[in-house]
Design a protein around this nucleic acid. Sequence first.
DNA 1: ATTGAAACCTAACGTAT
DNA 2: ATACGTTAGGTTTCAAT
Lengths: 143, 143
Amino acid sequence: MAPLDETDRRIVEALRADGRLSMRTLAATLHISRANVYARVQRLERDGVITGYTATVDPHRLGHGLAAYVYVNITQHSWKEVRTRILAIPEVEHAALVSGAHDLVLLVRTRDAASLRELVLDRLQGMPEVRSTETELIFDELL
Amino acid sequence: MAPLDETDRRIVEALRADGRLSMRTLAATLHISRANVYARVQRLERDGVITGYTATVDPHRLGHGLAAYVYVNITQHSWKEVRTRILAIPEVEHAALVSGAHDLVLLVRTRDAASLRELVLDRLQGMPEVRSTETELIFDELL
DNA sequence: ATTGAAACCTAACGTAT
DNA sequence: ATACGTTAGGTTTCAAT
């Protein structure tokens, strides 16, 4: 759990830019030895700095043509129970417990408006902890 | 640009779960040939279904202890100019043009409250297109 | 103690047939 | 689906600082 030095940060940055970089080319571009980069990446993964690797996809090409933010107010603040219910919904890409006018902010992706309606009106508002929701359609995205 | 079949979707799903999966183990787990999986992944990347690979990191371990949603209202709806300005801010992890009471929703990560204040009050509200902002602190996250 | 350089075997890649 | 040359993974040893 040692603090990250400059080399560690460059490794993380490089792997965020290309998660399939080989340890060889990573070592070459950072001008450090293979053994060094291998040990460091291993340490970064073990310490939980790097939590995993994933393919980034285009949601539109996967049948998720619609994206929306759903702002949720919950009745009882049993965050743990809501948490497990939310995690069971595959359309939820990001969920955050926030401080302002709402309790939860969800980023959801669905096939179309009908699917979004079903998700919000049936599944979300069907939860006993959910008091109210507010949905904001996403027109365009960066990142 | 052919529509994805079931095997394509399983490939994408597997690579989202582990972006560093080897083509061999991917072929083995899906019970298809190496040449098949290799050609399919190549096609999925070429067609823009898979847009890249990245390491997922723990923001807290990288000096980003604070996360917030920033809701932005812009004056003139010159989305293209705002777009380039927003993209130049490294703290912005996700940005969306939305339909509701706000024009933009930003997910930002900063080191601390002072950095967030500087980002919102100086850099965002300093933009000529930005009319007003509203900031909502994130207490906890799923995903 | 930490890093770089080199060597080593195994596994995976990428392409061909 | 198999084979084949090339590249990468993962570990070890040693020298250097």
